[in-house]
Amino acid sequence: MRHIISILIENEAGALSRVAGLFSARGYNIESLNVAITEDPSLSRMTLVTRGNEQIVEQIVKQLNKLIDVVKLVDLAESPHIERELMMVKIKTTSHTRTEIRSLTEIFRGKVLDVTATTYVVEMTGPSEKLDAFVAAIDPDTIIEVVRSGPTGISRGENGLCL
């Protein structure tokens, strides 16, 4: 099962490596991890995607909670939530392919951020599967690079992960 764990953590040097170190030391897998400061500068918010059976994920959650720097966490997969990921793709273009890529971008509600004589940079946000679909729709030989943030998420409704 895929789990998306959202963590509120002290914004201290080394906090990130405590989380990353925990995963490598205990052999848990991380599919993606992103982190940034919150509106309260003393706190960072981390979103971590992992996979494992119920028992492993239960241990992951307990071990994360045990880290002294972790203030709070929630497994977003347990309740209704929204996920978004940001992607930028640099694509080789020719006069023949430009229109096609532009219309594909529009269909996926992306934006062309940068244009040169031979390339486009396309920006897109959405659930990870949508980004996968976009990449799959493009001729792989034309893709120069793909940059993805990994998903971040937030729960629906009034509850929030805050102090």
């Binding site: 080394g14 490596s17 030391a25 002294i68």
Partner: peptide, 14 residues
């Protein structure tokens, strides 16, 4: 030292 001991302490401080 903070890095070396991270996996074998309850917590550490610099």
């Amino acid at each position: 030292m903070v890095g070396i001991t991270r996996p074998c302490v309850k917590h550490n401080f610099l």
